[in-house]
């Protein structure tokens, strides 16, 4: 029956069931991503951020929350300029991170 309304999807992240497989693979390659403090320096300096929504901070968070589509969508706008690596106060090799994620996505595509 059509009531004209239906159950709304929940935006809550359930950490009990979250898919961390990609995060685990990526952190094995670059464990320093765990030290992100969410300061936003990377996004603030990003050449692509203002137009495309690219944000390394949000990519790291999305990896930790299992939101893989968001990871893919944000990273696709990266130009690999390396500016984010320059500004990170934790010294995270963000370029390495981005390449590691891309590599995993490519592997999946190939399969």
């Amino acid at each position: 029956m059509d009531f004209g309304f239906s159950l709304s999807p929940s935006s809550a992240v359930n950490l009990d069931t979250v898919d961390l497989s990609l995060f685990r693979k990526v952190e094995a390659r670059c464990p320093d991503i765990r030290t992100c403090i969410g300061c936003g320096s990377c996004s603030a300096t990003c050449m692509a951020s203002a137009w495309s929504g690219m944000s390394v901070r949000q990519v790291i968070l999305a990896l930790q929350r299992g939101q893989l589509r968001q990871v893919e969508q944000k990273l696709s706008a990266c130009m690999l300029c390396g500016k984010c690596t320059m500004v990170c106060p934790r010294g995270i090799n963000t370029r390495n991170l981005i390449l590691a994620v891309s590599r995993e996505f490519k592997k999946e595509e190939a399969q």
């Binding site: 929940s10 935006s11 809550a12 992240v13 359930n14 950490l15 009990d16 969410g38 901070r57 949000q58 968070l61 999305a62 929350r65």
Partner: peptide
């Protein structure tokens, strides 16, 4: 999770 702007439960 205020950095993500989403509710979180665990």
């Amino acid at each position: 999770d205020t950095l993500a702007g989403k509710p979180v439960k665990v």
